[in-house]
Design a protein around this nucleic acid. Sequence first.
DNA 1: TGCCTATATGTTATACTATAACATGGCTGC
DNA 2: GCAGCCATGTTATAGTATAACATATAGGCA
Lengths: 179, 179
Amino acid sequence: MSDPPLFLAADHDHRICARAILAHAEGVCRTRGTRLTEQRRRVLEIVASSHAAIGAYAIMDRLKEGGGRPAPIAVYRALDFLIANSLVHRIASRNAYVACTHLGPHHGSQFLICRRCGTVGEMTSEGVWQALVGAAAGAGFSVVAPVIEVEGECAACHAAATAAAAAPDGAAADTVAGA
Amino acid sequence: MSDPPLFLAADHDHRICARAILAHAEGVCRTRGTRLTEQRRRVLEIVASSHAAIGAYAIMDRLKEGGGRPAPIAVYRALDFLIANSLVHRIASRNAYVACTHLGPHHGSQFLICRRCGTVGEMTSEGVWQALVGAAAGAGFSVVAPVIEVEGECAACHAAATAAAAAPDGAAADTVAGA
DNA sequence: TGCCTATATGTTATACTATAACATGGCTGC
DNA sequence: GCAGCCATGTTATAGTATAACATATAGGCA
Ligand SMILES: [Zn+2]
Ligand SMILES: [Zn+2]
Ligand SMILES: [Zn+2]
Ligand SMILES: [Zn+2]
């Protein structure tokens, strides 16, 4: 009912999102006694710098901008840590990664991926979870780790596409890139 | 209610499955005026030779057994055709492919992947579909192409694991490989 | 029949994604 | 200090997928 919106407006102040993600990571690591090292922190910052999913090699390129010469394995090791702590999620259908936008522990998120702007919304619908577990149980199958990644269109892009289709003349509304 | 079982017994006569898949493919291609060429047919036979998902390079190795020297691209092109015609599905979380076991047209299947035997069951639960579309709509998101791939345990493997845990002495029941 | 075009395949090279194996460094607790 | 653990560096390689261009084959049609 009062869930926060999965998709924020394109012009939202994303620094607020990024800060919240980093602060949450600090808290998680302090609680668990794990270490959010500089490298892991930088990878998380890069992943969290946008609501779109980013590939491991793109993360590496961003790290290089800071002057270092990180090898792919360094990025994957940082991602392994972040994923193990549910601070980052892997999007298997894109071979890419997104920062978790949830505060508490959770399992079985559903990822809504806009085919136009690339924004990924992380949804945790109890109804979807129960429908899936129930249907699987009907086949004698016990669910352990679901991968649910939905390609589609977010509200903003859908509205823009509809408007463009209605008035196909002249300058089409630009597709907004993920902030 | 009267759905066919998603997971067949390990000792079922899989030649029946394979023949049905090939016959269905012949029919689909005849209806659509597309061509089930020898290469595409062989790739489909290989993918359909088991209920487990198989990787593109494993398919290539199997093709080589026939004497040819297929390049990776040949396998991917055949897979592209088969996937476009819904005769094969890609399992993104495994980078692997399974033959479709459905007869009619369909969208949004849910794939149940046994972590022990590797068998993939293709489920088409209307309830899961509706729960997902409904929940996404609540976020203003319109679903186009969901990827639902669930890791878990099939009934047979779950029973075997439970039995092995109850009687951990001596010969544990072998994990059955996908036929 | 013989050309024409679209589709399918062959060939070579390369891009992209991810991990193995082993060495080094650095913090922590004793 | 030093032992042990964890994190990182270094090098090499495995695994997955596509680009670009040449050739071949099937069928439609003049
Ligand atoms: Zn944001
Ligand atoms: Zn969008
Ligand atoms: Zn079978
Ligand atoms: Zn199984």
